[in-house]
């Protein structure tokens, strides 16, 4: 019996969100008196033994290059077999794009209850109850998993990566993989430097910025802070910015440590996707903008004057520290 963490990877590297899932899995295993292991389908250049420092005892790997591309049907079949053969009791995914693709299928295949969007370790004082984000971040639900095998998909940036020390042994798996049924024909990289859902800091612009030509200062600030860029829905609808930057209830939901909203009014649908951010900074020329009610820090002022000032101050900070 063990806790098994799905290790997602891209371009040879384990994703940061999987390290969050591993840290979560290690703490959960401690609560349950079990050990925590990782499972990786495909090949990476990262040293898998190193994952021991996050608490993993063993890393099970099905090391086939063909598995570096996600084929959901095949992955679900393989994972179901692996879970059964290892007698894993709790399976942890990050609720990132791969987790969203895989966890539901595994849940259905194993008839194992799934809570996706978890934000905390389960409460095991009375059953197995997991807190998850609902209503696009406007509330939380406590959901009981009633099955023997349990699956949790942990929201990105909801659990701190923690090093516990130790090293993991790597064990190869011998399971036949089949022909993938989906074929990857192209991949494109987003313009931003940091993927939005993984970013710790997000700089976001709204209609108050007047037009796409004014995004230079947003990108510059994001670059200086090693942040991702985002935008409100009308900005994406008007094609000022790509739709993968649209955050909110009908866009991407994010929970960075710092969300800087510039020229965004703070409509309920926008707030829904960003209000789990730990700290929110609002820059808006209208003191009545609803966003200020959800903010931790704010400046009432013209973005075209304030943002260049912030950029200067950040540069100054970097040059003195």
């Amino acid at each position: 019996m063990s806790v098994l963490v799905f290790l997602d990877h891209a371009e040879g590297k384990i994703k940061k969100t999987s390290l969050e899932a591993l840290s979560y899995g290690a703490d959960l295993a401690l609560m349950l008196g079990l050990s925590v292991n990782g499972v990786l389908l495909g090949t990476v250049s990262d040293d898998l033994g190193e994952l021991g420092k996050f608490g993993a005892k063993k890393i099970y790997q099905l090391a086939k290059d063909a598995l570096n591309q996600l084929d959901v049907q095949q992955y679900v079949r393989l994972l179901a077999e692996i879970v059964k053969s290892l007698d894993a009791k709790v399976i942890i995914f990050s609720n990132n794009v791969s987790g969203k693709a895989l966890a539901p299928g595994l849940s259905a295949k194993l008839k194992a209850g799934l809570v996706s969007g978890a934000v905390k370790l389960p409460d095991i004082s009375n059953g197995f109850v997991v807190k998850k984000s609902v209503f696009s971040g406007k509330a939380f639900a406590n959901v009981a998993i009633k099955t023997e095998i349990k699956i949790i998909a942990l929201n990105p940036n909801s659990y701190k990566i923690s090093e516990k020390g130790g090293s993991a042994s790597v064990e190869g798996l011998a399971i036949e993989d089949g022909m993938p049924r989906t074929k990857v024909v192209a991949t494109t990289k987003a313009s931003g430097e940091v993927p939005l859902t993984e970013a710790e800091i997000v700089v976001s612009g709204g209609r108050g910025l007047k037009g796409p030509e004014n995004w230079g200062m947003i990108e510059e600030l994001a670059h200086l802070l090693h942040a991702a860029t985002a935008c409100s829905r009308p900005v994406a609808d008007a094609h000022w910015r790509p739709h993968n930057e649209h955050v909110g209830q009908t866009g991407i939901a994010i929970a960075p440590n710092l969300y800087i909203a510039i020229g965004i009014s703070g409509a309920i649908q926008h707030l829904a996707g960003v209000n789990r951010s730990k700290v929110i900074v609002v820059i808006n020329k209208d003191p009545e903008a609803p966003f200020f009610k959800a903010a931790d820090y704010g400046i009432v002022g013209d973005a075209f004057e304030v943002v260049p000032g912030i950029i200067e101050a950040v540069k100054h900070l970097h040059s003195t520290s």
Partner: peptide, 14 residues
């Protein structure tokens, strides 16, 4: 947009 499960599609496929 209520329970944000992102689960039903993947389950149907499985």
């Amino acid at each position: 947009i209520d329970y944000n499960g992102s689960s039903v599609g993947g389950m149907i496929a499985a």
